[in-house]
Design a protein around this nucleic acid. Sequence first.
DNA 1: GTCCGTCAAGAGCAGTGCTCGCAATCACGT
DNA 2: ACGTGATTGCGAGCACTGCTCTTGACGGAC
Lengths: 228, 228
Amino acid sequence: MSAASLRARVRAEMTDEIKAVARRHLAADGANLSLRAVARDLGMASSAVYRYVASRDDLLTWLIIDAYDAVGAAAEAAEAAVDRADFTGRWLATCHAVREWALANPHEYALIYGSPVPGYRAPADTVAPATRVGRLMGRILADARPDPGEPVEGPLAAELDAVAAEVAPGVSAAAMGRGMAAWIHLFGAVSFELFGQLANAVDERRAFFDLQMRGAAAVMGLARAPGS
Amino acid sequence: MSAASLRARVRAEMTDEIKAVARRHLAADGANLSLRAVARDLGMASSAVYRYVASRDDLLTWLIIDAYDAVGAAAEAAEAAVDRADFTGRWLATCHAVREWALANPHEYALIYGSPVPGYRAPADTVAPATRVGRLMGRILADARPDPGEPVEGPLAAELDAVAAEVAPGVSAAAMGRGMAAWIHLFGAVSFELFGQLANAVDERRAFFDLQMRGAAAVMGLARAPGS
DNA sequence: GTCCGTCAAGAGCAGTGCTCGCAATCACGT
DNA sequence: ACGTGATTGCGAGCACTGCTCTTGACGGAC
């Protein structure tokens, strides 16, 4: 009948359902989700889900890939809504989108940007989606044509050039280094806020984050946003 | 006999021994250390260690406090060895000390700067040791008397002033904001390196980190290190 | 010398990831 | 149209976890 056999289609639906329930459990209980519990929620024996999921780590990998895709999509959507010439605006839209997604999905954020879960080794499937936000930032940086700055010395220069060639063509090694500083700054700020390092220090979370990311934009050498 | 009764002394020794074994297990297996396993290593029944440890979370809290103290001590020792007038040098010494401690004790680092372990709520005892590295950075910043910069607006300014009053007296809100940017940058960079976000991007880890932290020093407004 | 606090042990509960054999079912190829 | 074989689900079971409770024994304090 269909291109995919009925069996395969039912199987795909089943795996989707497992993923959905697992994501719900992840949101509720964090990374210590239990296969047995999702099996219970699905109304079937724990051993039955092993027909679809190779292991608990396998299930986590699915969720990790989905999470990377979700932040990436959120960031891209927010960035796309900004005037292409407003580089700082594009950068800030990206930052706030990432932060808001993280606040809305804290456990999923922790899954991808927190400490690796013990005994878990990230398979190769996860590296491609993981680069999505970085690539978006690279595009902004390349469009902004930042000041090349003083040349970087040593073997590091070649590596930064390689990174630039991959995500931000035409950007110098030094500017790429500053771009990665902003990248680190972004996820560092979100992680600190989410993981509680800002407790008892700053309550104006959004304003603080905004200040931080504007500073990062300046370091990167993005043009000042129109009307700010 | 002694000031502390014999009972209390034996008890203290026992808890120290438990902590030591637990730290060994943490280093080997990560945050999913099991009380039963450390009990086995100690040659006693799992139920016996509950005489000394209230719960697994309690044990984790001990290790967290120790870890905060250990990074703090490592950073302070490295920073103390640098000429007081060389602010950038003091900053870089702090950064590299933190990074090297983290590389040597990855699981302990993950415990304190990674995602919070699921279901674990950090007790109040952990907040004091947690500020140790931040306070050290504050002292460097205050000594460097950075440019006040443009005033920060809104309620955030008061919060930044309060933070400055606590860790870096005499520093303006804007400069404090830049100092916190460096703070975030430091731990963001270490976390990214340790948690695998730099994989397939940069191999010259130390040189990259050094470049990043020199950039952070510049952003903070520290004086350029003598002879660099 | 008795007494009571402290300690360690064992059994047990509820939960986990994961495996394996058995039974049923149901889409598919002939 | 039908037999069949792959696919699915189940239950029992293993080894493990955190944690509780009871029981027995040791030993310092009075």
